[in-house]
């Protein structure tokens, strides 16, 4: 049976690279996101690269009304359902300090929206008894830091949610992978020199596939973030509260 991949937040850079990888392997992709014109272009791209089907659907993490049609579209493909979550928003901490209302949207985009969607998906996957869920968090969720702790808190909540979902769905043969990327290549870092610990969307996607095939539970990418964050997590709070890293 062919794989069906629901891609939540399909317009993000990592999602685009992930979509291509599963399209080239002949999957059916359900591209869920807010910008329909962009999703339609991505669907054409997926088809040209070998996807057996590519369906753009509207998705807004803050609007649960949009969730059910995505599940329906996935069921209609008849394939083994898998889901990869790439949604999230990261307003700067300064902006949030100026406008505390931004907290709600940040948490909805990065945590409560995708969690509610996955909660609706869980029974389908459980019944199916196979398939994978890839949830993209962030190393920012490992400890609340002065620079982006609202985003970090949302990702921490999502990581804890995924941990519980793994515990539940693992019993019926569904695998849940939590991905914690460090910073991913942006334009300012691609001038002349290579930045330490910076990675690219394609490298993250290659790591995700490797982790899926080994049924890993948590993936730090680049791997160096695992020891780095382990050390950061070990710093005693009285000291950490005076640091700005």
């Amino acid at each position: 049976m062919t794989d069906t991949w629901i891609i939540l937040g399909a317009s993000s850079t990592i999602a685009k690279a992930f979509t291509r990888s599963v399209a080239e392997a002949g999957a059916h992709v359900i591209l869920a996101g807010r910008r329909m014109d962009d999703l339609e272009a991505s669907a054409a791209d997926a088809s040209a690269r070998g996807a057996v089907g590519a369906t753009p659907v509207a998705f807004d993490a803050r609007d649960p009304e949009t969730f059910q049609p995505i599940l329906d579209a996935a069921v209609r493909t008849g394939g083994t359902i898998n889901c990869a979550v790439f949604v999230g928003s990261m307003p700067s901490q300064d902006d949030i300090n100026d406008d505390p209302a931004l907290v709600d949207g940040t948490i909805a985009d990065s945590f409560t929206g995708p969690a509610r969607f996955l909660q609706m998906l869980a029974p389908l996957m459980s019944e199916q008894g196979s398939g994978s869920i890839v949830g993209v968090g962030s190393v920012a969720g490992d400890r609340g830091r002065v620079g982006n702790y609202v985003y970090g808190a949302a990702k921490a909540g999502f990581a804890t949610y995924l941990s519980g979902l793994r515990n539940q769905l693992g019993r019926s043969g569904v695998h849940v992978l939590t991905v914690k990327p460090g910073p991913v290549d942006t334009v300012m870092t691609q001038g002349l020199g290579d930045q330490p610990f910076m990675t690219t969307a394609d490298a993250v996607v290659a790591d995700i596939h490797k982790a899926l095939s080994k049924k890993r539970n948590t993936l730090y990418t680049k791997w160096i973030w695992w020891p780095v964050m382990t050390v950061i997590k070990l710093i005693p709070e009285p000291i950490f509260k005076k640091m700005s890293i």
């Binding site: 850079t13 054409a44 791209d45």
Partner: peptide
């Protein structure tokens, strides 16, 4: 740099 505009639109 337009390298992010890298989709196949129609084939």
């Amino acid at each position: 740099e337009l390298t992010q505009l890298d989709r196949i639109i129609a084939f």
